[in-house]
Design a protein around this nucleic acid. Structure first.
Lengths: 240, 240
DNA sequence: CGTGTTGTTCCGTGTCACGGAACAAAGTTT
DNA sequence: AAACTTTGTTCCGTGACACGGAACAACACG
């Protein structure tokens, strides 16, 4: 029963849209009366909302989601550094952590000019085709890298690296330079520079700047990203 | 059963801390074996996480909470204006919406100097003792105002307005000026200016700047807040 | 007005949630 | 180190209630 309810809620991924009863039934594979009953319960609890015939995720969920502790702490301490980075570059800034073989974005701030990116706060993407992901991967256990390299590499665009040998080389360069570069591997027309954030000897997060390819200028962006990442690392070390 | 699970998850409010089995049992009023079983299920689903003897809210919850649509859209379009406001003032900036008789904060950005505020993203506070709340209240249906005024006014500090007559006057001033002021009503030592955000004839949100009382300067802050609120209103109108 | 579709109600069946009780494990006190 | 307290876990008989097929109702479309 819990599992069925969870199936319903998770059927709203990845877009968070709004769906009708029949759609939910199809998306979850649950029979219609079951969805009907459970959805009604979920609405009563505030986990779903219903307007007319459409269901969407409810306010309670936002409230609880904002309390998730590991996320909350890191976000809170990272925010000022993300602000600095944004002000220095005036470009779209990301904060992400690794979760299994994916990167989960915790924060993303941008100005009026919104890039068309696949990244969403709370959403996850493959480690291998994003700046943040590559920075996390390059600075995590070697076994994880092998694990990732042993599987077929996913791709978000035609430019995503799908050749394990090429990716391995890229990761080595990242380890040396401390910065991960990415060009159009996550979204067409967008490039990205990322840097890892350390705390207590391990990589806990990474942050990045994404810019339209046209004005991609490593010389301008790299120092800013590195500075922000180091600043955050320093504070995390002090706080822990 | 769903309700019991919800009771468990909501027992993590308001702090989002981590609790042990016995604590959860006490907080929820559910018998220990029940909590044990449900918590195990919730962990399996990723809604809770367990490290040693302590449970905390899980990653799935963050993921789903970030997808809640109304929240997501407004946040996304508001972010650039919040950034502008932050850069113009370099103070803590809030975005909030009304939910029933409370204000729920959708976003909060700040620099390195963190104010000690009761506001949390996803958290709710009384409409009557916060800048954002008063701005929302002053520009919503008159019946809501009456409803609020008819009940005992909650207070967060000794400076919170608890006299209905005084609050009524304050709201009228806000309606005239288009700006809500607040001094130490939400947190000691902190003052705040807020402005409502309109879309399609109704008030959909409000944003505010909170500053240490020592450097509270309406002349400097008011134009910035107003500009940001109007800018956001304009975009919302265009988008809708 | 017929026809496909979606939302809702009913209800008999059987499952699985329930939680008291008993047990195990980890601290705490004397 | 034994006696006690508190917390976590397992067991299991009972009964409530989740389940979903089937039948019905409310639309939508032509």
């Amino acid at each position: 029963m819990l599992e069925k309810a969870a199936r319903i809620l998770e059927s709203f991924k990845p877009s968070g849209g709004s769906y009708r009863l029949a759609e939910l039934s199809e998306r979850t594979g649950l029979p219609k009366p079951t969805v009907h009953r459970l959805a009604a319960d979920l609405v009563r609890l505030g986990w779903l909302e219903r307007s007319g015939p459409r269901y969407r995720l409810g306010a309670k969920l936002f409230e609880l989601g904002s309390l998730v502790p590991h996320r909350l702490d890191l976000r809170e301490t990272a925010l000022p550094f993300l602000q600095d980075l944004f002000e220095a570059t005036r470009e779209t800034v990301h904060l992400g952590v690794r979760e299994g073989m994916e990167v989960v974005y915790l924060e993303r701030i941008h100005g009026h000019e919104a890039l068309r990116l696949p990244s969403r706060i709370g959403g996850s993407l493959p480690l291998t085709c994003t700046g943040v992901g590559k920075a996390l991967l390059a600075f995590s256990d070697a076994e994880l890298t092998e694990e990732v390299l042993s599987r077929p590499l996913p791709s978000l665009t035609p430019h995503s690296i799908t050749d394990p040998a090429r990716l391995r080389m890229a990761l080595e360069k990242i380890q040396v330079s401390g910065l991960a570069y990415e060009e159009q591997e996550a979204a067409l027309g967008v490039a990205c520079i990322a840097a890892p954030v350390f705390a207590g000897g391990t990589t806990v997060a990474a942050l990045s700047v994404a810019v339209p390819r046209a004005r991609f200028s490593p010389a301008r962006l790299a120092p800013a990203v590195r500075t922000a990442a180091l600043g955050l690392s320093r504070v995390l070390r002090a706080g822990a």
